[in-house]
Structure formats: C-alpha cells, structure tokens
Design a protein around this nucleic acid. Structure first.
Lengths: 146, 146
DNA sequence: ATACCTGCAAAGGCTTTGCGGTTCG
DNA sequence: CGAACCGCAAAGCCTTTGCAGGTAT
C-alpha cells in the first residue's frame, strides 16, 4: 500500500504528463481526499480546502474531484442521502456503512467472492460489497437495547 | 417467491390496515415497479403510469415510491448518474450493474459471505454485492474487441 | 363527513456551466 | 505568451413541499 506522499507524487507526475496544470487548489483537494478516513462530501472537502485557501470556490472542488475520477484516482460513492461522497482509496476494499448517519468506513475482507467473467451476458469487471449496520455512535444513540 | 399479484394483494391489505387510501395512482406505481425488470427511475415510472392515467403528476410518483420505501416494499438504489432507481424485489439478491449505461439486473448468488455480527464496532444488519460490468448491448457498442 | 390524497406550481438542494480575469509552464 | 484554470454567479437537474380541490372509506 502506497503512502499519501507517494500518491501525491504520482498524481503530480501524471498531471505533468497529461498537460494538466498543478495548481495549489488541485493538490489540496487530492491531499485532503487522501488523508481523510471518512469519504467526505464535496462540501466537506471544500470546507477543508478553505482553511488553507480561503478564496477557493466550490465549483473548483467539483471540477477537481471530477478530474480525479476521470484519472482513476478517486471514486464517487453514493448511497442514501443527497450528496455524493468521494474515496481516494484505490486498493481493493469494501465499505461498511452506517444506516443511521451514513458514515462509510473502508474494510478489507479475506473472503473473496468468485465472479464468473461472464454473467447473464454481462462481461464482468469487478464487484464491491457493502455491509450495512449501525456505527458505534449511532448504536448508543438510537438503539440502547439492541 | 411470491407473484406480483400476491404482492399487490398484500399491499392493498396493508394499506387498509394502516389507514392508507387505495388510489389508482398508488396501485399503478407499485404494479409497474413489481413488473419491471430494470429498476426504473421515478421519471420512467411516471412515464409508464401516464399511459394509463395521463393526468398523473410526477410529485405523486415521488410521494408513492417514498411511501413504498417506508413500508419496506421498495428500495431506493443509487449508483452513478443523477437519479435514483427503485427496486420492489424484496428477496435476498444482488445487483449486476452496467458501468456504461447504468442498467441494473437482479442476480441470485449461491455464494454466501459470512459477516460477523459485529465489525469494527458496527452492529451489522446485512450486506449487498454489486457486480460491475458491461451489459450485452454496451459490449457491442463501445468495446467491439473486448 | 372527514381524513387522506392528488395536481399544480413554486421552492429547495446539489451540481454544472459560461465568462472574464488569472496563473502555470 | 498561450493554454489551462480559477472564482463568481447563473442556470440546470432532481426532488420536495404548500396549497386548494378531489377522492376513498
């Protein structure tokens, strides 16, 4: 597993190679995404970036996460709730999701599922497992006896 | 596995029991959802209902799918793209999703994953597996040699 | 008769886009 | 210098909501 520094370096290399400019905002968005544990929304990334670059615009954050997605460096994850969340973890992993507050945590499972390459005419490319439950905080709050 | 007729009957029973009125629009929405194979969007359900009830409103469809969700008779599924899709299949099943056009198909797997009741402090309630790939139509269109 | 429901239209929230000025290479 | 990018504001979806009239029980 690469470190955040490694990934930032690779990102900068790829930007150079592809003719994308390396702007402070762009780096900041990716860095926040890499260091965050909780799959932030665009709004949350925006708030973080603002701490360092107070004049950043929300539109820039939207544009940057889309760029990252197209480069394959981040994934959009969308469950209930209204806003999309982003995940810069490119390792094989799955998600543990709180049905109460929407928190998402990465998990790594030993259990591998064997998916046929072809399924009902589909050519398969991969899979993801979402496990639903109540996170520690919400267990305490809403289901004291559960 | 119950038939669509069975489910419609149970739905009507439950509505009576819970004091919900049985309106033609409401029944039509659920019926379309039950008979559809492809997890329609609200817009798509709306277009179908309009064939029978031309004056139906989009807002009514939104309200009805929300009611169905609260009754546990339908689930909202959300992947990429902007609009939510609905699924009235309440059996244990997973989803096969086309990464190109967004089509979703139900699949039933023998392979069961064993999920511990407690995982990283979460009390788990269930899981779902999403398998990504290219559907037959999109295989032909976009990846002729794949 | 009365609650519940519908249709309409307006409002709301998230996301995208057009534009002029700015910055990176 | 030129292409790419940013910030701002406006526009664009999708979805929700308020209200007045209609409908099921």
């Amino acid at each position: 597993m690469k470190t955040a520094e490694d990934k930032l370096g690779l990102f900068i290399e790829r930007c150079k190679k592809e003719g994308l400019k390396i702007t402070p905002q762009r780096v900041a968005v990716y860095e926040i995404l890499l260091r965050s544990e909780n799959h932030p929304t665009v709004e949350e990334i925006y708030e973080e970036v603002k701490k360092k670059y107070p004049f950043v615009s929300l539109a820039t954050v939207y544009r940057t996460v889309e760029t990252l997605e197209q480069m394959g460096l981040a994934k959009k994850v969308c469950y209930w709730g209204s806003s999309a969340r982003y995940d810069a973890n490119t390792d094989d992993h799955h998600h543990l999701i709180c049905v109460s507050c929407g928190a998402i945590r990465d998990i790594y499972m030993e259990d591998q599922i064997s998916i046929p390459e072809e399924l009902e005419g589909f050519r398969t490319e991969g899979y993801s497992v979402n496990i639903y439950g109540l996170c520690p905080e919400c267990r305490g709050k809403t289901q004291p006896t559960a």
